[in-house]
Design a protein around this nucleic acid. Sequence first.
DNA 1: CGCGCTCTTGACGAACATCAAGCTCCGTGG
DNA 2: CCACGGAGCTTGATGTTCGTCAAGAGCGCG
Lengths: 249, 249
Amino acid sequence: MTSQIIEAAELLQPMFRKLQQRDELGDEEKRAIAEAADQRLVFAPGDDLVADGSRPEHSTLVTSGFTCRYKMLPNGSRQFTAIHLAGDFVDLHSFLLKEMDHSVGALSHCTVITFPHERLVTISQRFPHLTRMLWLSTLLDGAMHREWLVGMGRLSAAQRTAHLLCEIYLRLAAINLARDNQFNFPITQASLADAVGISTVHVNRVLQELRHGGYLAWDGGMLDLLDLDRLKAFAQFDETYLHLVQEPR
Amino acid sequence: MTSQIIEAAELLQPMFRKLQQRDELGDEEKRAIAEAADQRLVFAPGDDLVADGSRPEHSTLVTSGFTCRYKMLPNGSRQFTAIHLAGDFVDLHSFLLKEMDHSVGALSHCTVITFPHERLVTISQRFPHLTRMLWLSTLLDGAMHREWLVGMGRLSAAQRTAHLLCEIYLRLAAINLARDNQFNFPITQASLADAVGISTVHVNRVLQELRHGGYLAWDGGMLDLLDLDRLKAFAQFDETYLHLVQEPR
DNA sequence: CGCGCTCTTGACGAACATCAAGCTCCGTGG
DNA sequence: CCACGGAGCTTGATGTTCGTCAAGAGCGCG
């Protein structure tokens, strides 16, 4: 049992780093999370971690890999509403919303840890500050949703694509999973299309435009943002919405 | 002091109705909110309730009128990320995110009540269930953001417009501020354009299309959804994301 | 070896932006 | 009482962005 908790604590590092970028976490709070952990699960690309319409009894924390939050339309088209990384709780939503109004899928091989809702209720009763930090985690999701909305409404497809790559790089860097403006990004152009809200054909053209503009190189899985400052300027990227500031919350 | 609290409780009715659509609220919880209320303020159309980049010391609850959550781009274009009604907390976000990453503006004449963040911290320490309900309120915002994102990515301008009107009608009806498929909606076509992410010229054409299709009538401020079922079908509207179900949370 | 998945390219059309102008309505001041 | 101006709504002409359809190329995998 003890060794399981220690093992879980290891996997929880990305999440701790994510939260500690925003406020300090006490040892008691970390232990409370580690003790609330339940199962470790593994998913392959294309698998669903959480299905639309389901009523999960637990919430899921991604510990490695890339996942997407998405919604299917009756006509078969698909739209991502977020991309999630290691350290992200992908369905804290279901803890209070109860019924899922969208699905969460694996974009790459990924590992997760589940947390039974009843243990989250206990945390909300005993650890007010930790509760606020989990709440904060869902507020960060909201902030990213808003940024995506602005892009969808007022930026070009190329700008949105550039914006997304800037966002993912900064989020990965914040948990020490990327540096030197490059990171492993093993997703297909079709997935990128569903994230940005365009067709796969157009994604292809946008990527060529960004490559020829000297903004990035992307061979196989490895993505290299060759000129991050210029890419940010092109995408009108302002990282304020990521709230990467440590302060009392 | 007592009369102030009672007066506040009156203004809080839309918010109580909103939350009670999702779970029961105890009298103690309602009193805790009423006692945390601070100032009553009034805004005119075009005013900002909360400014991008500011660090509010209090959170704002709308008690009447229409407000929008929006972001300005360097090139002067604007995009709404939500429309808020009576009963909506428009910047619970700043309670934990601290710095605003967007603005909140008044679309009509509106009244609000402010809640100092320190009193919200106290609530989070003493009322775990009420805290979860406030958390839920921000999760509902997130759910609406996601629905808007799907529309922006995969629906036509006309469908998005129709979808927005369905959403607002159901939200108003849920707090007893609309019925018989009609409601007062005093916003300009330019604002609607910023909500839906298109140009004002195109909004005009879309509205004509919806009018000629027999979906709605809109003279002056009063909007009448003449055939709500058909409008919902056209917009692929599924109200699941509004989570209008009362259950323990 | 052959199948399926992903990426790529070209031709064409639809959805929407932009520009420009004229309209109505309404409040304001002379 | 009317002239004026501004805000919002409406319309037409034109251009751009992006979707759709179709086909082929590269590549890994069974």
